[in-house]
Design a protein around this nucleic acid. Structure first.
Length: 475
DNA sequence: CGTACTCTAAATAGTTAGAGTACGGTGCACTATT
């Protein structure tokens, strides 16, 4: 079989990107695959092409509804008509129509939550699914344990589907995350493709400040002098709004973005940013997955991220076009503990575990009575189906330990005196072979190469940002 | 850990300081209400 010919005939591309062919060959050969491909390496082709060479449909488990809609639109744009997404966006008529005609679709997108619904499982059971794709598979590990436990349950559908081949795709996975993907998707001997994840065109900077006000001053000055597009990651929803409001006062085209906003508003911000109508987006970690903007030149972390994985994912949204891009991590004393504690508090407490295990009525009442938090209930309910109470307590304790390790890695990053790039790669069990000329703050960095000066400076707004800053800050 | 808010006591009539407490980030689906 000539894969290149199929690639050209179907999609018009003359050659594969690194990894694609290898991954596709393994899938066609009947093997499960975990593919670690950096952003922009054409992950979706790894299931799109096989779909044309196999009998039956491809079922893609996707983490976000908006991402799903995007993927569907992309495929349709490429001329693929038999695409459907099963999710809560569907009105009852569409939904019933799609569910009745499931066997006519070549690509079916679905959320993990939908996938584990018994009636959906029944609908999928009669289908000929040749490949199950776990897109953004790091979510299994990143969200499965404390946030979206249905991510741990994807494998439950396998028997009903007659054990199709499985392809797990992600851009960022440590050895531990890869192991968890393998474990929870129940893959016995997967082929693991790992592409070097270093992004040569992204340089790392870390700036330390005495307090939050100094960070703000630096940010205002920098953003006033440098045009976007850029993303500023804040630690809280409120902070993302504050930063956006502050920068707007200086005449900068900016907007905020976080999970507490109306869906329509979120889409609007994303579209404006994609169309170049916004220069800087101030957001929480909600922003990014599924955002494909090639020319992001700056990613600034105004507050410290909660894990190296999260940091790398967010940084990786810069420089997709290959142009030089700068990742700047801002740190002020005390920042590292802010979200670390929050993240720990989020896992179920031993008390909550005991309550759920010993509860004999409707567990939802525990939530109503304020004894158990809602996410805790969902996480504990998952474990209750698999483990004893004591083992669940041990399991959750291990998760907490893991979170502590993650925040220790971040702390080390902040205080690093050696090469940032090497350290980040080390966290992903990879080695740096070739160091780019512009590497990081600890190992050669020429800032001039990354500055994106504004061509038309809006003088009237630049001169008085300090007074504006003081005006809105009580300190 | 830091912030914002609430509560309480001591001051004396509306204000203030300090103590205590709740909250902070990622999303799906479902249901009830407009």
């Amino acid at each position: 079989m000539n894969l290149e010919k199929t690639l050209f005939d179907t999609y018009g591309f003359t050659s594969f990107r690194p990894g694609q062919k290898e991954v596709i060959e393994k899938i066609l050969g009947g093997q499960d695959v975990i593919a670690l491909l950096p952003t922009g390496m054409g992950k979706s082709m790894c299931y799109q092409l096989p779909a044309h060479l196999m009998e039956g449909s491809v079922l893609v488990v996707s983490p976000l509804l908006s991402l799903m809609q995007d993927q569907v639109a992309q495929l349709k744009k490429m001329g693929e008509k038999s695409v459907a997404a099963i999710n809560s966006f569907l009105d009852p008529a569409e939904r019933s129509n799609i569910l009745h005609n499931l066997n006519t679709y070549r690509f079916i997108f679905i959320s993990p939550e939908m996938l584990v619904q018994p009636y959906i499982k029944n609908k999928l059971m009669g289908l000929n699914i040749s490949l199950l794709v776990a897109d953004e598979a790091h979510c299994i590990s990143q969200w499965g344990f404390d946030f979206r436990p249905d991510y741990l349950r994807i494998a439950e559908i396998m028997p009903a589907l007659g054990h199709p081949r499985v392809l797990a795709l992600t851009a960022t996975a440590t050895a531990k995350v890869t192991e968890e993907i393998k474990q929870y998707l129940k893959l016995s001997e997967p082929f693991i493709y790992t592409h070097p994840m270093d992004r040569k065109n992204i340089a790392y900077d870390i700036k330390k400040f005495e307090n939050g006000k100094e960070k703000l001053e630096w940010l205002s000055t920098f953003v006033a002098a440098n045009k976007g597009p850029g993303i500023i990651y804040a630690g809280t929803r409120k902070k993302s709004q504050e930063l956006s409001n502050l920068l707007s006062l200086s005449g900068i085209r900016t907007a905020f973005y976080h999970g507490g906003m109306e869906h329509q508003d979120r889409i609007f911000v994303q579209q404006q940013f994609q169309n170049g109508e916004l220069e800087w987006v101030c957001s929480t970690n909600a922003f990014g997955m599924g955002v494909h903007i090639p020319d992001i030149g700056h990613v600034i972390h105004f507050q410290v991220p909660t894990s190296i994985e999260g940091y790398v994912q967010e940084v990786g949204r810069a420089g997709r076009n290959g142009d030089p891009a700068l990742a700047t991590l801002l740190y002020a004393a005390g920042d590292e503990d802010l979200l670390a504690n929050l993240v720990l508090d989020d896992l179920p407490t031993n008390h909550e575990i005991r309550e759920v295990y010993q509860n004999e009525g409707d567990p939802a009442q525990l939530v109503d009575q304020g004894i158990v938090r809602e996410t805790s209930l969902r996480v504990i309910s998952y474990w209750k189906n698999h483990l004893s109470e004591q083992d669940t307590i041990i399991q959750i304790a291990q998760q907490k330990n893991e979170k502590i390790k993650q925040s220790a890695k971040i702390r080390k990053l902040i205080n690093l005196e050696s090469c940032v790039r090497e350290y980040v790669l080390e966290c992903f069990d990879q080695q740096l072979h070739i160091k780019p000329e512009n590497c990081c703050i600890n190992d050669h960095l020429n800032f001039a190469d990354f500055l994106t000066h504004r061509e038309t400076v809006d003088i009237q707004v630049l001169d008085t940002w300090e007074s504006r800053l003081n005006a809105i800050l009580p300190c």
